[in-house]
């Protein structure tokens, strides 16, 4: 559905995208994961035909990103990272306006947006600027889908929204995917990436890895342990001094310790820590998540 090859883009000499190629299949929920400044927004804006790449080519639904930009705009729904609807217009006025400029009506698109629209319909007469973050996002999604697009481009939809709304939003995306829409979504949130069919990891404009979340985590090269003790700060510092330690980072109530080899087992690590005076030590073997992979690849 989306096919880009060797796309590069720089702003004033700073490389934002470095030779990116990727391929999104029809009906996929495709995630692009990376920290702030990785180039996610630039990539989405190129796909939305808002900016041109310096080099490289790309097609969307078989249409050239540069030559056929007008046609692409009729089949793409784009939701910018920042709320970009008219804050002084009401929910209904925003929807009607975007339906009108696409030459359609709310009724014609009702089936597709119904599940989301019913949640904001009670606020039809409220101005968009007065909606909560989660509501704004639902409205933005409705507006992006008002013309029944084949591809949805969502730029960090999880930002600025509370965890409950974010989970709801991802449930909506999963539901939308089941209607056959291809969804291309960027996020800086590791746990959101695991909800995608496939993800690419992006860092400083470069692709670090791509594949399904399980493929990416399965490719993690080191034995990994979750470790806990009563003084986490000292624990992490001590673990980093451990012979053969590849890295150690805090993950919620555990620290993830990756080892260069499996010479040491959980017991050895536990003894090492107890000798250092740690109490309530717990060491468990664990499997890597996306974030572990990201840190490893960085």
């Amino acid at each position: 559905m989306i096919n880009i090859e060797n796309i590069s883009k720089s702003y004033d000499g700073v490389l934002a995208l470095d030779n990116i190629s990727l391929n999104v299949k029809p009906g996929e929920l495709f995630g692009i994961l990376g920290p702030d400044g990785a180039g996610k927004t630039t990539l989405i804006r190129i796909l939305a035909t808002l900016i041109k790449a310096d080099s490289g080519t790309g097609t969307l639904a078989g249409l050239d990103l540069v030559k056929d930009y007008r046609k692409i705009r009729t089949i793409v729904g784009y939701m910018p990272g920042r709320f970009s609807l008219y804050q002084d217009l009401t929910v209904r006025e925003n929807l009607e306006f975007f339906a009108n400029v696409f030459g359609t009506t709310i009724q014609q698109s009702y089936d597709l947006i119904r599940d989301i629209y019913v949640q904001i319909e009670p606020f039809n007469e409220r101005r968009a600027g007065a909606l909560s973050g989660g509501m704004k996002q639902k409205l933005a999604l409705c507006c992006a889908m008002i013309h029944l697009p084949k591809v949805l481009l969502l730029d960090e939809p999880g930002t600025g929204v509370d965890p409950v709304s974010r989970k709801e939003f991802w449930d909506m995306l999963k539901h939308l995917r089941s209607t056959g829409i291809t969804i291309f979504v960027s996020t800086a949130n590791m746990d959101e990436a695991e909800k995608c069919d496939r993800v690419v990891l992006l860092q400083k404009g470069k692709l670090l890895a791509s594949g399904t979340p399980s493929e990416i985590t399965a490719a993690y090269p080191h034995p990994l342990y979750a470790v806990r003790a009563n003084d986490m700060y000292r624990l992490i510092n001590d673990l980093r001094t451990l012979d053969q330690a590849a890295g150690c980072y805090a993950f919620g109530e555990y620290a993830h310790l990756s080892m260069l080899s499996d010479n040491l087992n959980t017991k050895d690590i536990q003894h090492f820590l107890e000798r250092k005076g740690h109490e309530d030590v717990e060491v468990l073997p664990t499997t890597a998540n996306i974030e572990d992979c990201f840190i490893e690849l960085m």
Binding site: T49, L50, V76, Y78, S84, L85, Y86, F98, V101, G103
Partner: peptide, 13 residues
């Protein structure tokens, strides 16, 4: 300033 031009630009306007 409000960013709405971004949304307009991806419409056929």
């Amino acid at each position: 300033e409000m960013g709405t031009i971004e949304q307009i630009n991806v419409t056929p306007v």
